[in-house]
Design a protein around this nucleic acid. Sequence first.
DNA 1: CAAATATATGTAAATATGTTGATATATCCG
DNA 2: CGGATATATCAACATATTTACATATATTTG
Lengths: 99, 99
Amino acid sequence: MELKELSPETIEKAANMLKAIAHPIRISIVGYLEDGKKRTVTEIHKKLGIEQATASHHLVILKDRGVLSSKREGKNTWYYLKHANLRNILNSIGDCCKE
Amino acid sequence: MELKELSPETIEKAANMLKAIAHPIRISIVGYLEDGKKRTVTEIHKKLGIEQATASHHLVILKDRGVLSSKREGKNTWYYLKHANLRNILNSIGDCCKE
DNA sequence: CAAATATATGTAAATATGTTGATATATCCG
DNA sequence: CGGATATATCAACATATTTACATATATTTG
């Protein structure tokens, strides 16, 4: 795939998706969901040690920009990675940054 | 690799790197350099149809955040991808966004 | 219905980023 | 040195993002 052949719309969408991930808390959220499991807002905010409202806020951003999907079940909303290959992004970036 | 085990510093660095890429012009620049070749500011600004100052500005951002490297040779500064596996990021994102 | 639990939204101030045009610096060559 | 070419920087305004706290909405259960 040659990215330079992508349409402006696709590039715009890709930028929004990357912007969504490009934040310490949201990287951590994506990292926590990297295994493909679905997790609730409560699980996420407790795991990451952040406020519930903060977690919800960042989860909405990730969902709006196409990084995560969610499904409501009773009191809970389960969030999960929308695309399995988003894992590659974190792995690649992680590799670059560990050096 | 489990991202959740990365240090806060590494996560911070990863966020800065992703933030650097997460912009339409900068995605296009990285896409243009995706083949691993070194290119000058002039080549880049002409190829993308943007002002020279704009290109230089965005190239500095990409370099400062560890996405690109550069090497001055006479009048020219050659920019190129610092990490080969950054290509995976664009490919993954592109795949997610084409749908 | 009321209480408890889970999630989402609103607001406002602080901070960061983007954009543009003008200008500065660096290098080469005659 | 002086002109031409290539790149980098500056300044200033507009826009977007972050953060934190308060509060609202939704769902289950007694």
